[in-house]
Design a protein around this nucleic acid. Sequence first.
DNA 1: TTGAAAGCGCTAACAG
DNA 2: CTGTTAGCGCTTTCAA
Lengths: 369, 369
Amino acid sequence: MENPRKPSVSMSVPATRAGQTAHPQRTYGRGHGRATQADVAELAGVTTMTVSRFMRSPSHVGSVTAEKIREAVETTRYILNKNAGLLAGGRSSIVAVIVPSIASSAFSSTVQALGDGLQRHGLELLLAATNYELQREEQQIRSLLAWSPSALVVTGHKHTRAANDLLRRAQASGIPVVVMWDHDGARKEFVQIGFDHSLVGSMMASHLLDRGHRDLLYVSNGDPRDVRSEKRCQAFVCKAQDSGAKVRVVSLPYDMDAMAAGREVMRVQLLDGLPRAMAFSSDFPAAGAFLQAQRSAIAVPDQLAMMGFGDYPIATQVGAGLSTIGVDRLALGALCAQQVISMVAGDSSREVHPNDRQIVPKIFQRETT
Amino acid sequence: MENPRKPSVSMSVPATRAGQTAHPQRTYGRGHGRATQADVAELAGVTTMTVSRFMRSPSHVGSVTAEKIREAVETTRYILNKNAGLLAGGRSSIVAVIVPSIASSAFSSTVQALGDGLQRHGLELLLAATNYELQREEQQIRSLLAWSPSALVVTGHKHTRAANDLLRRAQASGIPVVVMWDHDGARKEFVQIGFDHSLVGSMMASHLLDRGHRDLLYVSNGDPRDVRSEKRCQAFVCKAQDSGAKVRVVSLPYDMDAMAAGREVMRVQLLDGLPRAMAFSSDFPAAGAFLQAQRSAIAVPDQLAMMGFGDYPIATQVGAGLSTIGVDRLALGALCAQQVISMVAGDSSREVHPNDRQIVPKIFQRETT
DNA sequence: TTGAAAGCGCTAACAG
DNA sequence: CTGTTAGCGCTTTCAA
């Protein structure tokens, strides 16, 4: 079951070439049975250095040698050991990424785009999900940093004190840190690629206020750990209050599918007396609420205006289309990838232009406002 | 900007203890400026061995020593280098996972559950998305294997020849391989945790046939690279034909949001003349089609029966609920995690029982059939 | 409970 | 274009 020793191929008489110190017999039971560069080198009749060069840039070795090495790689079934390479050379192709949740379509599309972009440049994704727990994030940062990643991407700028220290230290020791999903003009410590969630909140409020609605309801996610959602909520409320409108906040029921939660909120509001306009923490509850309102024959937007957030496909599917606001999550991921790649390469000319790092949320006005 | 040399803390006079060979001056520009176990050891007045032991099991060193090391770790801001550890010790905490897509909610929830389970046991997720391209998957397997992961999880059993070789070789060299999402009783080479997509197809057909429908339409995903979807489609058609029913297949328009694609198909069918029952490759197009049918005042299920696949939340949200069939994707991910963890630990008693590795798809009958 | 020696597999630097 | 040498930071084994 365990370590089947060296592959048979390279066992056939070491044939130590003259002048080379004989391979001392193995005193320690290490190794994992896979072929090493030494095995390949021996078979090809070259040194490990040449094999090493070949593996990284085949064109940098002679064509005859290259062919011999290629064969030897084939027969020994050699697979590069990146750990050893990293230890010796200091260059990693791993990019560590931390998101609150993989299952949420908000982050999964960003991660997908990020991963695609990175892969095109030979970078790999070491991924962790915090489940919105800062303590867990801190531990994950520590854990991922132990792999000496070539860059670290985290979501947002709210972290534990210790986590922030780790990020700062990482950056100081040459590991680029990119904060994604959030963008706060006042913060300069790390590169940020994202958008201003406060702006989203106030844009939502403005959109509704501009249409003359003075009795607003914000349906918040209700999870205080989701700081970005809270930010949107607060900005919405501020904007509404500043304009002298009436504004309330209710939370979505916890631990329930997002659309179903939106339905539930609408059910309650239908009994309690509807506001004039509702804004939601995401398109999913908004869509659920819309369907529920539709069932009760509420006239939208004449009787009740509704607006979601995120620009998810679902918003185009309910009724004649739900008004929403959002950013292109795939583009966001792609920008992150570009930024990471250029920072890893040390090519500042390819970095995302500072003006483009703050993505401007876009309003999609459809039939519900 | 680059490698700020050793941290100042450990720079204060090497104070080489007697009998130790003096540290030769650095001839090679290596290192990355972070503290090493040697730095910690020196500061704590012990050898690296003791630090190493402390890092892995603090209880295995004396309590006075432990305290000194703890302090030294703090002041040097030491972070373990897992690459070096892996190289020396041969044990990795990385689990490589390959899925067709991260953005698809099908896989993202499974990956989320898998990641959560793994993390509880100190294992980390190295993730790659193939975008349904087998060639890319092969390259990814090769690439991930180069990190000496402690296990490898792939999606389904359709791979390139070379990829299959790699998987076989990995398993032979002691890296457990788990195939997830698919389960084919005839295949025994790798542990499988998933379900039989052919069974899903025939169950869908049976469900509709049992309700007396003899004019069926299967709305397939239309991407031949999605082998599991194709399998469901074929099984559906076979089952329907075997029973003598009329059955047709149409494909969803390509490169379009899934719900919108479902709508589009329904639009066309409404013009062409509706079948008696429709089965969809997923709940999303089914939901879109349902909404479109609803708009045209089609009586469902009396005039047209509809059925989705996947048991996604959306299925509970359209109309009074869409009938569907699916498996618990979070449970699937959790089972994978359990299996991987036990295989990595070499604890076969904790492995998922073979009978539980094949997940039985469940039919959720709601209002559309 | 702690230490000494050896070496995991690879690559940087330099020489030829 | 290729080889030599040293060493990346850690853990193994064995000894005290």
